[in-house]
Design a protein around this nucleic acid. Structure first.
Length: 345
DNA sequence: CACCCGTGGTT
DNA sequence: TAACCAAGGGT
């Protein structure tokens, strides 16, 4: 065995031993595995979400619900409210379902095949839990791994068509031992050095193995298909207040902001034609416009104050103290509307 | 495979 | 500032 036989995973793991990020959901140095509950919770929170955004939520959740059994017993409503602001709210509904399933099973299953059957656990998360929490060899492919592998092998085919090739290449460099550390090392490398823009190849432990680096323009990988334009929608939300309280509804489980508390609205279908329907008749005073950008459209939502002598519409809801709206767990769009209205009401 | 589903930070 | 990006999953 010569030094030139050192594999990519050897080099990466040696780098990780020195440069691993210290994160609240990671095992302390010296303890190889960590609590599957914390691994699962962090992985779900981290789906399409930055480490910085997750940290305070992870701390809040683990303090309030220290175990999967505790979370399994929590009312869904409480979990949804605690999740407010993190986004992708189907994750919160699936979190409760998954916790109850795992608690019923006496704990999380240890194999990818079983893990992927759980609600909110897809191919990535199943592999990550199997590798990180249970020490199994699993090929963990997230956006970081896609980027690192695309550069290492200078994959010319654009995403998402290149996913099959990327998975094969990732599998070829995944070690039998320390697959969990390897996965986290790939993610740390992708987050810090092999970053989406302006990669710092001078610090990269894999530069000598990188075909993208050899090509002199590693940053052009991964090549991606063009994205669709983001349309702008208009809509209206209604502020209906009386006696220091305001009317909140619970949104349908499916669709935008599913299952979250909110102000009644017109469905945001209304364009300039004003085709939306108010929850009750009467004169309305426009308090202002809230602008908010979602993944696939932007929204300009008028906030209209309605006469409080009328009773609210047919949609089920509850009167909520205006001076305690923070505890309602409103998603950001409606939190913006609340701060706009509360300042004037 | 294409589309839907949040949010906040960065350039 | 408009666009891009971040430890994806469900349908």
């Amino acid at each position: 065995m010569t030094a030139s036989m050192e594999t990519i995973s050897d080099k990466l793991l040696a780098w990780y031993d020195v440069h691993a990020r210290s994160l609240p959901w990671r095992a302390r140095p010296g303890s190889p595995l960590t609590d599957p509950y914390r691994v699962w919770l962090s992985e779900v929170m981290l789906q399409q979400t930055t480490v910085a955004a997750v940290k305070p939520y992870f701390a809040k959740f683990t303090e309030r619900w220290p175990s999967v059994e505790a979370l399994a017993q929590a009312p869904e409503e409480d979990v949804m409210a605690a999740w407010a602001g993190l986004g992708y709210y189907s994750r919160a509904r699936n979190l409760v379902k998954c916790a109850r399933a795992a608690a019923r099973m006496g704990g999380f299953p240890e194999t990818e095949v079983e893990l992927v059957k759980l609600p909110g656990v897809g191919a990535y998360t199943a592999a990550a839990i199997a590798a990180i929490a249970f020490g199994q060899r699993a090929v963990v492919v997230d956006a970081n791994v896609e980027r690192v592998v695309s550069r290492l092998f200078a994959i010319a085919q654009p995403l998402p068509a290149s996913r099959k090739t990327i998975r094969e290449k990732a599998g070829a460099i995944t070690p039998d031992d320390r697959a969990g550390d390897f996965a986290q090392a790939m993610m740390d490398l992708g987050a810090g050095i092999c970053a989406a823009r302006d990669p710092d190849c001078a610090l990269c432990p894999l530069a000598a193995d990188c075909q993208g680096y050899a090509s002199a323009d590693p940053a052009r990988f991964p090549i991606k298909a063009a994205k669709k334009a983001k349309p702008v929608r208009q809509g209206t939300a209604y502020w209906i207040a009386q006696g220091g309280k305001v009317w909140l509804v619970r949104r349908a489980d499916k669709g935008m902001l599913g299952g979250m508390r909110a102000f009644p609205d017109d469905g945001w279908r209304a364009g300039a034609d004003g085709s939306g329907t108010a929850p009750l008749a009467g004169e309305g005073e426009t308090l202002g416009i809230v602008r908010h950008s979602f993944t696939h459209f932007s929204l300009e939502m008028a906030v209209v104050k309605l006469d409080s002598d009328h009773s609210p519409g047919e949609q089920a809801g509850e009167w909520w103290p205006i001076d305690d709206l923070e505890s309602a767990g409103l998603p950001t769009l409606f939190a913006k509307a609340a701060s706009l209205a509360a300042a004037q009401d």
